[in-house]
């Protein structure tokens, strides 16, 4: 089933986190307008949560054109090699094994085709997106290299200057962070990220971190958002400092007591008896 929405609803970091954690394979298409109101499209090809290519059209020729443009292989030879390349092998990998391309050339292609393009996507003010799991991924657009979607997020957000679009996604200054471990991750954190990570114990608010690290709260919020987006930590809201008495709060908790003659005697958090549960289950089943 295809997923469609827009970035103002579900931001790119959220989307990439979803695609990575879900190990999704498919074609992500983003449609947007440039500042001059020109229509643009970007296609992000994902295999098991990793970005394998980014293109601006679906004629399966983008990577091949880049190779020819750089004068690394002639169009004729390339066409011949494309025909010989097995259908399930990325063309970049095939050309490397056939000694037409060196590993460094593949890295340069991947940098231009994926890394540079992906970072630009985080600057989009708005875009409609569609993720289609049924789309066929063209191997002629693949170098054989890949980047996890959340690593792309870390890169993209580190160089992002205008955070206005993500302002309502940032964790609250009053929230704390707690660590999350989903699979094994080996992300290299920068200095502030590392310091925020160390303080992610579920009890230190972002405000306190900002004071301790002598950083503006916005920087700490943005850093925290990066760590959240790559699945290293989660935001834990802290209670507001309302000084309502416990007795009053407990009074509010039992509004029914005023309307019935039953006195509630049970202890806080006490277990309910097995007979209670069986009775409740029977009652619910018979209520339908």
């Amino acid at each position: 089933m295809a997923i469609t929405s827009c970035l103002s609803e579900f931001s790119l970091p959220e989307l990439f986190q979803f695609l990575d954690q879900g190990s999704k394979t498919g074609l992500l298409t983003l449609r947007f307008l440039t500042e001059n109101q020109e229509k643009r499209v970007r296609h992000v090809l994902l295999h098991q949560g990793r970005i394998v290519a980014v293109t601006n059209r679906l004629d399966h020729q983008c990577l091949l054109a880049m190779i020819v443009q750089r004068g690394w292989i002639s169009p004729e030879v390339l066409r011949e090699q494309v025909n010989r390349c097995p259908a399930n092998i990325p063309i970049g990998l095939y050309l490397k094994t056939q000694s037409f391309l060196q590993p460094e050339q593949l890295r340069l292609l991947f940098h231009a085709q994926v890394l540079r393009q992906v970072c630009g996507l985080f600057r989009l003010r708005e875009a409609r997106f569609k993720f289609d799991t049924k789309a066929t991924l063209p191997t002629t657009e693949m170098t054989g290299l890949s980047l996890s979607a959340t690593e792309a997020t870390l890169m993209g957000l580190r160089v992002l200057r205008d955070w206005v679009l993500l302002a309502n996604k940032l964790p609250e200054p009053t929230s704390a962070l707690s660590r999350v471990v989903i699979g094994k991750r080996h992300l290299r954190l920068d200095s502030v990220e590392g310091q925020v990570w160390q303080r992610s114990n579920g009890s230190i608010s972002l405000n306190t971190m900002a004071t301790q690290l002598k950083q503006p709260i916005e920087i700490i919020q943005q850093t925290a958002f990066r760590l959240i987006s790559v699945g290293l930590v989660q935001e834990v809201p802290m209670m507001t400092a309302a000084s309502r008495s416990k007795a009053m709060a407990e009074d509010v908790l039992e509004p029914v007591a005023a309307g019935t003659n039953h006195g509630s005697k049970e202890e806080n958090g006490s277990e309910v008896s097995p007979s209670f549960m069986q009775n409740l289950l029977g009652f619910l089943r018979s209520s339908k």
């Binding site: 809201p237 802290m238 209670m239 507001t240 309302a242 000084s243 309502r244 416990k246 709060a249 407990e250 509010v252 908790l253 806080n268 958090g269 277990e271 309910v272």
Partner: peptide, 16 residues
Amino acid sequence: QARFDFMWDILIRKAH
């Protein structure tokens, strides 16, 4: 609304 006050704490700590 996402306002986590004392009420919430009491409420969920007593919940089954």
